[in-house]
Design a binder for these strands. Sequence first.
DNA 1: ATTCTATCCATAGATAATCTACTTATATGA
DNA 2: TCATATAAGTAGATTATCTATGGATAGAAT
Lengths: 109, 109
Amino acid sequence: MPKKPDLMPGTLDMLILKTLARTPLHGYGIALSIKRLSDDVLTVEEGSLYPALQRLLLQGWVKAEWKKTETNRRARYYTLTPAGRKQLGVELSQFEQMIAAIGRVLQDA
Amino acid sequence: MPKKPDLMPGTLDMLILKTLARTPLHGYGIALSIKRLSDDVLTVEEGSLYPALQRLLLQGWVKAEWKKTETNRRARYYTLTPAGRKQLGVELSQFEQMIAAIGRVLQDA
DNA sequence: ATTCTATCCATAGATAATCTACTTATATGA
DNA sequence: TCATATAAGTAGATTATCTATGGATAGAAT
């Protein structure tokens, strides 16, 4: 039984950036937010999430700082940078363009 | 300058199956069809196309036979099998579900 | 005649992204 | 005390796509 993927490859960075565009969050919170907003359709595994966050840090699209959560745990909070906000715009428009193109190929006409 | 991808990873098999659901075609024709219907947004490179067709053959979702084109060239025509048509349905519905889920995450509410 | 472009197939190797599995640690509640 | 939720991360495998080739023929242009 072929298992269906947790995510659409190539969309993870965009989903993270969009999540952080709402409010800074730690990694675990990002994963929960995406899972909940998607009604459990999208699941961000830790093995995908943390490498993605490292990529985003390296690109300068997010910055991170260690803080305490409300429940008194140590957590690394990520914040969108201006460059990250710009990148989110780029990724959103490329995504829309791709989806529209795929839609044309899938049309029955 | 980061180049944008030719395709959305994970969608190629679906695009090929959908193309063959209209009419049998050879590989080159499949690539052209997808390119044209997508207004040049989607480009299927040979290095992606032929391995994908091998996968689809192995899965029994398409079958192939060598023929002559109208222009008298040898070409391998691919036809959708009943199993392939069923698989197309599965992939379409998973795709729709994913897109809808991503849409919810991207919403501004 | 020759050269160029389009048509056609295919593989090898590199790259990139995700997934599985694992490790570590603490707070809370049963 | 044991399970579960919260929190971070890495290693290695898997999978898909992309780049770069190689080979062949038809037809048009020079």
